[in-house]
């Protein structure tokens, strides 16, 4: 058995830098009707490709990365230009994960979480004999 003395340098991967961004909590509205749960989240400055939604084991992780940059010398700062919006929600089991869809418009994410067929209320017809 020969012991290798060679060192392996590991390059930083694209995904790793993301976690150094300051975390912001998006404000959300949550609505529900018979067919779905609807979530609106404020994510100003986030582009469509930088949004990630993960649903796993009853938890939904919402993440959106904002890559803004203001040129010049900053004279007043009230929010961080580059930030990650992140928030976790509990999702009921009755959601049909495969049919979840979302759209992003003017910095607002609209997330539709349709209920599975089994969870929808159903009218039972009474049959006459």
């Amino acid at each position: 058995m020969s012991e290798s003395t060679e060192l392996v340098t590991r390059k930083e991967q694209a995904g790793e830098l993301v976690h150094q961004l300051p975390i912001a909590t998006p404000a959300v509205d949550i609505f529900e009707n018979e067919g779905e749960i609807l979530l609106h989240a404020d994510m100003p400055g986030v582009m469509k490709d930088d949004v990630a939604i993960n649903i796993d084991n009853g938890k939904m992780n919402l993440s959106g990365i904002r890559r803004l940059q203001l040129a010049g010398a900053l004279t007043r700062r009230e929010f961080t230009d580059a930030a990650e919006y992140r928030r976790t929600f509990s999702v009921p089991q009755s959601i049909d994960v495969n049919k979840v869809h979302a759209e992003l418009k003017d910095g607002v994410l609209c997330l539709h979480l349709p209920k599975s067929e089994a969870a929808k209320p159903r009218q039972i017809e009474i049959q006459a004999e």
């Binding site: 609106h40 803004l68 010049g72 900053l74």
Partner: peptide, 18 residues
């Protein structure tokens, strides 16, 4: 809002979602 000074211009960003 964020405000910055680039020399010739002032630049302002404001968060106005939706």
């Amino acid at each position: 809002t964020n405000l910055s000074d680039t020399g010739d211009n002032l630049e302002m960003l404001a968060e106005l979602p939706g």
